[in-house]
């Protein structure tokens, strides 16, 4: 009896340990490039782990794409009816559930009205609008989009949409990851598109803030242009 309890406890402990171990390993990130013989790194570990889970790979998940991994990928491709070339390209990775990166259309700055207009830019802008003004009225959403675009045009901020959005500490929802947790609503997408097409309810504002939240005293020294919903806009 005593022995059995001992076994149960060790089993429990082991189980817990294993699950912790697995949990630790589950920081799955998107793979956005093809992997092939000679590739190294965490992406390869993910690939090997996945192949192992599916029973195609028996070796260690050591992060080195060698002969064993090559053979395993080929085997998987044959089974799935993908061209068996031993290269883990987008198709193979997608079949394994590892390819999550969106294929972006070539980004370019058209000189329409606001310097940005490709799909990827609209979606990115819409994400930040969703994160910063998801609960705001429509015109408040357009206004937040306009502030971001005004920054790209101002010498006081980085000169690209990416630069402005990912400037550290510039936007709360980017800093805390909220932008990646929600897909933008149809309204946010439409607002992004309106902002890109030139609508600017703030008339040139570079800052916006929510007075209900703690903000620096500095911000109140700005010239306020307008208030929309919960946000104050200014320069």
């Amino acid at each position: 009896m005593k022995k059995r309890i001992g076994i149960i406890i060790t089993g429990l402990a082991l189980g817990l340990l294993i699950s912790f171990g697995v949990w630790q390993n589950q920081e799955v990130t998107a793979i956005s490039q093809s992997l092939y013989w000679g590739s190294k790194g965490p992406n390869v570990v993910q690939l090997q782990q996945k192949l192992k889970d599916w029973g195609f790979y028996r070796g260690k998940a050591d992060g080195v794409y060698g002969a064993d991994t090559f053979a395993a990928v080929k085997k998987f491709q044959q089974r799935k009816g993908i061209k068996a070339d031993g290269v883990a390209g987008p198709g193979t990775l997608k079949a394994l559930g590892l390819w999550t990166a969106e294929t972006r259309t070539t980004a370019r700055k058209p000189g329409t009205s606001r310097g940005v207009s490709n799909r990827g830019d609209i979606t990115l802008l819409a994400r930040v609008i969703q994160g910063e003004a998801g609960a705001e009225p429509y015109i408040g959403k357009v206004a937040v989009g306009a502030v971001i675009l005004n920054r790209t045009e101002s010498g006081k901020f980085p000169d690209s949409l990416n630069g402005v959005i990912f400037q550290p500490l510039a936007f709360e929802s980017v800093s805390n990851g909220l932008v990646w947790r929600h897909t933008p609503s149809a309204d946010s997408l439409k607002a992004a598109q309106d902002a890109i097409n030139g609508y600017d309810p703030t008339q040139g504002a570079l800052f916006f803030w929510n007075p209900a939240k703690p903000v620096s005293r500095w911000i109140w020294s700005r010239t306020i242009s307008t208030r929309i919903g919960k946000h104050v806009f200014g320069n």
Partner: peptide, 12 residues
């Protein structure tokens, strides 16, 4: 300017 945009400084 690109490098400046990467420094962790609150907005103003």
């Amino acid at each position: 300017q690109g490098d400046l945009g990467q420094l962790p400084l609150a907005n103003p």
